[in-house]
Amino acid sequence: MIFKSLRDQRRPLIGWTLGLSVFFVLYVGVVYPSIAEDPATYSAQAVAKYPGALRDLMGGLQDFATAPGYLQSVVYQLLLPALFIVCAMGLAGRSLAGPEESGTLELIVTLPITRRMLVVQLFAALALGLLAVAAVTLLVAWAVAWSAGMDVGFDRILAAHTGVYLLALLFGTVTLAVGAATGRRAVATATVGAWAVLGYMVVTVGKNVDAVSWLRWVSPFHYYAEGRPLYQGFPAGDYLVLAGAAAVLALTAVLAFDRRDVGV
């Protein structure tokens, strides 16, 4: 079942891997060298272009022209996690709620496999699929960073990439869980979209606003972006929170789907 799910999704998996690799080549391989040539100008320009709250939204843009600073603010702050989350949402949506809505799930749930095992296997396929995308893009990221002359160790890129993977897995699992509980892909996508956007806002623009800053505890980005892995390496505690949350949500998906009428 795991193999089958991955096989069914091989096109989007390959597509996302290629797309994200191109993203790295463009942003790190092509854009960064020109910034590195003239750090003072670009750094000042970036700060001038994004004033105040907007700069917060971009993660602060500190050390924009240094290698870790550029990777952090341009790549790992917003764009890469956003793309990865969309990828995870797509994969998870197509694994359960999508087939239920189209009707192809009917033959699958009538196989001699328990509902629980079915969802566990779909979750495993999601985790493995995302892992494959993450592993390939990690190598691409490292290779491109190295060829662009970036002074960032592999361990730091690995640490940041692991964070992206866990973040995407978490949101993918939310998609799976909401899809398992409701059978509606649109509901699942909307839930994840809203949570991701609000969660991101809370930890960036909202971090200095007392009224909302406490909400950062329920924002997955709090556990992703605030550890600054490119500077400090693995934020083990934060990543464990992300992984634990994904596990709890996967369990929720399993239990929710086990109780439900399918395709009504």
Binding site: R7, D8, R11, S102, G103, T104, E106, L107, T110
Partner: peptide
């Protein structure tokens, strides 16, 4: 089991 509304889809 043959479902009443059989849906078979995809490139497979």
């Amino acid at each position: 089991y043959l479902p009443g509304e059989l849906v078979l889809d995809g490139r497979e």
